[in-house]
Amino acid sequence: MRKFVPILLMLTAPVWAQGSGPTPAMANRQLADPSKEAEAMRLMHSLRCIQCQGQSIADSDASMAATMRAEVRQQISAGQKPEAIRAWMIKRYGEWVSFEPDFKGARLLLWLTPLILLLASLWLARGLFRRRT
């Protein structure tokens, strides 16, 4: 057994490479009210982590994501609406921070392109339908 202790210690060494600062209390603790927690969770899944970029703040272990989760939970428990919190984040980090692009400006194109392409292709193919009848 004594032989294994140093090996076990070495295996756990990567833990020391983690950031050592404190984590905000609300980052990993659920809100007492389940409906509010669900509301917060839904929003957290649709906000992008600034540090690890591809992940939502609900999925990420990065310290920045922890801070953002704490902020979301604090604002939700203070009675803030999820969309207002999303706007709060966008005001600081730009549209980039939201996984749900809104329905205006250049982003309209993002939503409407599939529809436009479908209509255009139907129009192009209309002759095919006509000839059969």
Binding site: G21, P22, T23, P24, I50, Q51, S63, M64, T67, M68, A70, E71, K91, R92, Y93
Partner: peptide, 13 residues
């Protein structure tokens, strides 16, 4: 210590 001001500033790291 809780990075709250960093968030307010829109700072990313």
């Amino acid at each position: 210590s809780e990075m709250a001001v960093q968030l307010k500033l829109g700072s990313s790291g």
